[in-house]
């Protein structure tokens, strides 16, 4: 069923009966929640971790799609966690493809060129699967999945679906892995098994997302400027204050007997209170003052240096 046309384009043709078969399976599989163990040699990865950049790239790709094209696909890059328990998706790139009623073409030359290029920048990223936009899996998904299964080193590719039509008023992100179905293993026969995913951020990404979130909340034009050191500190302090107030209010309510106390919350609050180091006030004062002097000294010296530089600059003008 799969023919390689001049090694460039993976062309997939199939008959209507297959389509119907697939359609049935797809709707079936969406009901399957438990992970179906497969006979494959590698342990089944049952979890995916997605970096926010992946969503950003997919959405950008979707906005730049061709006319009359209602869904886009692309390759997911990432790595398998050391214990093979989860797959981390760190990056992705678009792959042009073409769908019609009876065939789907994926530009495999583009795919392999991009992999080469990406690996030169980050050799740790390997192909882990593919993404598509749209509200549901369709009949071509199995065929593309079959191709990616062979591309992925572990033999288990992840399929990420993002609903850009916003049915159910959400992006409806879902991830799947596939398992073969039927006694005869045919590429177009497979079952998509939903797997749980988490979105993971690291510190620097959070700072970026913070600003982007501000931009998202700006209704007028969706833009935001950058904040200064002081503003960032102020915002963080205000947030801490708000959180403290929330906790204080909760504690007050528990004490007053309005709300039943939660042991877990209580233990957390205890931990937090004991975490504050108890220092002798005189010793603290001394520490505080010496530190303050250090900082002020450094600031003074750096300002002095700048002034000297400026004087030197001006003197040179006179020469």
């Amino acid at each position: 069923m799969i023919t390689h046309q001049s090694d460039l384009i993976l062309s997939l043709d199939f008959t209507t009966s297959d389509t119907r078969l697939m359609g049935g399976q797809v709707s079936q599989s969406s009901a399957v929640v438990t992970v179906v163990p497969t006979a494959s040699t590698t342990p089944l990865s049952a979890k995916t971790v997605i970096r926010p950049l992946v969503f950003f790239t997919i959405l950008d790709h979707f906005l730049r799609r061709n006319e009359n094209q209602d869904r886009v696909i692309g390759t997911l890059l990432g790595r398998l966690s050391d214990d093979h328990s989860s797959i981390e998706i760190t990056n992705c790139f678009p792959v042009p493809h073409f769908e019609s009623d009876d065939r789907v073409e994926v530009d495999m030359e583009h795919h392999s060129t991009m992999i080469d290029l990406y690996q030169r920048v980050n050799p740790n990223e390997a192909v882990v699967g593919w993404y598509a936009t749209g509200s549901n899996l369709n009949s071509y998904s199995a065929l593309i999945q079959d191709y990616y299964n062979r591309e992925v080193s572990s033999g288990q590719s992840v399929h990420l679906v993002l609903d850009t039509e916003l049915n159910e008023n959400s992006l409806g992100v879902r991830t799947f892995i596939s398992s073969p179905v039927g006694s005869l293993t045919k590429p177009e026969n497979c079952m998509f098994v939903p797997v749980p995913f988490t979105v993971k951020y690291n510190e620097s990404e959070i700072t970026g997302l913070d600003v982007i979130n501000q931009a998202a909340q700006n209704e007028a034009d969706g833009t935001a400027g950058l904040v200064s050191d002081m503003d960032a500190l102020e915002a963080a302090l205000l947030k801490v204050k708000e959180m403290l107030q929330r906790v204080a209010q909760y504690v007050d309510q528990v004490v007053a007997g309005q709300v039943p106390g939660n042991n877990v919350v209580g233990r957390y609050i205890m931990d937090m209170l004991t975490a504050t180091p108890k220092l002798d006030s005189a010793a603290f004062e001394q520490m505080f003052h010496s530190h303050l002097q250090d900082v002020l000294m450094v600031v003074y010296l750096s300002d002095l240096t700048r002034t000297q530089l400026n004087i030197a600059e001006r003197l040179q003008r006179l020469v």
């Binding site: 988490t198 997302l209 979130n213 969706g222 833009t223």
Partner: peptide, 24 residues
């Protein structure tokens, strides 16, 4: 030069989703 950051409308949806409680 002054820098501003811009979001597409799709991204606004995404950020909205991030701001909602996560299912897991």
């Amino acid at each position: 030069l002054p820098v501003v950051i811009h979001n597409s409308s799709m991204l606004k949806v995404l950020m909205q989703e991030f701001s909602e409680p996560s299912p897991i």
